[in-house]
């Protein structure tokens, strides 16, 4: 974006404050999404889902084959390591400061709206790999007061760490618990001198204290034509692709297999699908 356009947008925003652009502000309020938002699935989301908007642009998504993760002990942890070491995600060793981009949840925690009454014994033990859903109607993007979190042209819910003021409104807004906050300096050390990031990847920045972070669908790898790190590490247990491309592999899998999403009734249109 060149600086002229940015200046224009700033002025337009100031205009909105003055009420000059009130109709457009009201319009975007009604639509309930950022102006920059581009997503929109072809699928309708669950029983509470609205008729989906016509797909515009890309919307990357992920199918997670839970059974393969259950059959291969340690596969989920392998994916987590791949992601967290690549993105310099710190490990503080306690729950209070915890930062995670991808993690494993129990079935009843990942899908609290699904019945847990008389459930299958295997289901209970299944490791549900969870990460940001990169919703096509993300509540976090709606809540952010600075557009520090936004939908990019690939349908990825991105974080602009330079702009985040650390108000944590997005954390309150995310229905999937996918967001973490840097409660303290991620480059620090614990009491016995162990750094929170054991080995810094020099090709990716760390974060600074006071900003929110989360999965970025490896947008830096996608730009180089690579798959996200977790998908690569999962070796077939995860299928990544553009949900808005009818010919993509992910759409083929979605049309053949029965999949579920986390909390579809909230109308967020999550881009993660689970095969159980």
């Amino acid at each position: 974006m060149d600086s002229n356009r940015r200046k224009f947008l700033k002025l337009a925003g100031l205009g909105a404050i003055a009420g000059v652009a009130a109709p457009s502000a009201f319009n975007s309020l009604l639509k309930g999404e950022a102006i920059a938002s581009s997503g929109g699935h072809a699928e309708s989301a669950g029983h509470g889902g609205h008729a989906a908007a016509a797909p515009t642009g890309k919307q990357y998504g992920l199918v997670i084959d839970v059974k393969q993760f259950a059959d291969t002990p340690g596969l989920g942890e392998h994916c987590i390591r791949a992601c967290h070491s690549l993105h310099n995600v710190p490990d503080f060793g306690n729950k209070k400061d915890e930062i995670k981009w991808i993690w494993i949840e129990k079935y009843e925690n990942a899908f609290p709206e699904h019945s847990n009454y008389k459930r299958n014994a295997d289901l209970h033990k299944m490791p549900i790999v969870t990460l940001c859903n990169h919703c096509s109607k993300p509540p976090c993007v709606r809540a952010c007061p600075t557009k520090a979190t936004f939908k990019n042209k690939d349908g990825i819910v991105m974080m602009d760490f330079h702009r985040c003021i650390g108000c944590r409104f997005c954390m309150a807004a995310c229905p999937y618990g996918a967001r973490s906050f840097n409660w303290r300096d991620p480059r620090g050390k614990n009491e016995i001198g162990k750094p929170f990031i054991s080995r810094i990847n020099p090709d990716f920045p760390t974060r600074t204290r006071g900003v929110v972070e989360k999965c970025n669908f490896c947008s830096e790898r996608l730009a180089k034509g690579l798959q996200p790190a977790c998908v690569e590490a999962a070796g077939g247990a995860m299928i990544f692709g553009d949900l808005n491309d009818p010919g993509s592999e992910i759409n083929k899998v979605l049309s053949e297999k029965f999949t579920i999403q986390r909390k579809p009734s909230l109308g967020t249109n999550p881009s993660l699908f689970y095969i159980l």
Binding site: K10, G13, L14, A16, I17, A21, A25, S28, L29, G32, E33, A34, I35, V141, R142, A143, C144, P145, T146, K147, A148, R163, C164, I165, G166, F169
Partner: peptide
């Protein structure tokens, strides 16, 4: 960075 709220006005945010 508090003034980012005014520098990047976002009418969809409450």
């Amino acid at each position: 960075r508090a003034l980012n709220v005014m520098l990047h006005p976002t009418p969809n945010s409450m």
